Deep mutational scan, measured.
Amino acid sequence: LTVQLGNLEWHFDNPEQALKMAEELAKRYQLKVEIDNGTLKFK
């Protein structure tokens, strides 16, 4: 699973870790998370 923020990307083997990080980033920057083809992206 990949977490993508702008041109930064983090790759996780563990989806739970990816979701946890995505939630933290979304909270911190007040963004919405969307999943696009196995990639978590922020809007």
Results as ranks from 00 to 15, higher is better:
E16C: 10
N7H: 13
L19F: 14
Y29N: 03
F42Y: 03
Y29P: 01
P15T: 10
D13S: 13
N7C: 10
E24M: 14
L8V: 10
E24I: 14
L5Y: 11
L31N: 01
E24V: 13
E16I: 13
F12S: 01
K27C: 07
L40D: 01
Q4L: 12
H11W: 11
T39K: 10
K43N: 09
K41G: 04
E9S: 14
I35A: 06
N7T: 13
G6I: 04
K32Y: 11
L5D: 02
G38L: 06
K32H: 11
L19Y: 14
D13L: 08
P15V: 13
V33Y: 15
Q17H: 13
F12R: 00
L19I: 13
L31G: 03
F12A: 01
A22L: 06
A26P: 00
M21L: 15
E24L: 14
A26I: 05
L1S: 05
E9K: 14
Y29A: 02
N14W: 06
E9C: 10
K43C: 07
E9L: 14
R28S: 04
Y29I: 03
K43R: 13
W10G: 00
T39R: 09
H11T: 08
Q17G: 07
Q30L: 06
I35F: 14
E34Q: 09
T2R: 09
A26E: 05
K20T: 09
N37D: 09
A26V: 04
Q30N: 15
V3Q: 02
L5E: 01
E24W: 15
E9M: 14
Q17I: 11
L8C: 14
I35P: 03
L40G: 01
M21Y: 15
F12H: 02
K20A: 14
E34G: 02
L40I: 15
G6R: 02
K27I: 12
L25W: 08
A22T: 03
D36H: 14
A18G: 07
T39A: 06
N37T: 04
A26F: 07
W10M: 06
A26R: 04
L25F: 11
E24N: 12
N7R: 13
V3D: 02
T39F: 13
R28D: 05
D13K: 12
K43F: 14
G38V: 04
P15S: 09
L31R: 00
F42K: 01
Y29G: 02
G6Y: 05
K32A: 11
F42D: 02
T2D: 04
G38D: 08
K32L: 14
P15L: 14
A26Y: 07
N7D: 12
A26S: 07
W10Q: 02
V33N: 00
Q30A: 09
L25K: 00
K20G: 06
Q30W: 08
K43D: 06
E9I: 15
M21S: 03
D36L: 11
V33S: 02
E23F: 14
I35S: 05
A22R: 01
K20L: 11
L8S: 10
L5W: 15
K32V: 15
H11A: 05
G38P: 00
L19S: 04
N14P: 04
L5S: 01
Y29F: 13
L19D: 02
K41E: 03
K41Q: 07
K27P: 00
L1I: 13
G38H: 09
A26K: 04
F42H: 02
F12C: 11
L19A: 05
L31T: 03
L40V: 15
R28M: 11
Q17R: 09
L40N: 00
K20C: 03
Y29C: 11
K20M: 11
N14M: 07
L40Y: 13
F12D: 00
M21I: 09
Q17C: 08
L5F: 15
G38M: 06
K32E: 13
Q4E: 05
L8A: 08
T2V: 12
E9W: 11
L40Q: 01
P15K: 12
K32Q: 12
K27F: 10
D36E: 14
P15I: 14
H11Y: 14
E9N: 10
N37E: 10
L25H: 03
P15N: 07
K32T: 15
F42G: 02
W10A: 02
T39M: 10
R28N: 05
A18I: 05
G38Y: 06
G38F: 06
K32N: 08
T2Q: 04
E16D: 12
K43Q: 12
Q4W: 07
G38W: 04
G6Q: 04
G6M: 05
Y29S: 01
H11V: 08
V3Y: 02
L5G: 03
L8E: 08
D36Y: 11
L31F: 07
T39V: 15
R28T: 07
A18F: 06
T2C: 12
Q17Y: 10
E23S: 10
N14K: 10
N7Y: 12
K43I: 15
F12Q: 00
L25S: 00
A18T: 02
V3I: 12
Q4Y: 08
M21D: 02
L5M: 08
T2N: 08
L8F: 14
Q30S: 10
G6K: 03
V3A: 03
D13Y: 06
E34F: 15
V3P: 02
A18D: 01
R28E: 08
F42V: 14
L31D: 02
L19V: 08
L19R: 07
L25D: 00
L8Q: 13
H11C: 08
N7P: 11
E23G: 07
K43E: 08
T2Y: 06
T39I: 15
Y29K: 01
D13T: 13
E34Y: 15
L40H: 01
N14V: 09
K32G: 05
N37Y: 03
K41A: 04
Q4N: 05
N14G: 05
A18N: 00
G6P: 03
T39W: 08
L25N: 00
L25P: 00
Y29M: 05
A22P: 00
F12Y: 08
E16W: 11
R28G: 02
V3N: 02
Q30K: 13
L40T: 00
N14Q: 08
L19W: 15
L40E: 01
D13E: 13
E34D: 07
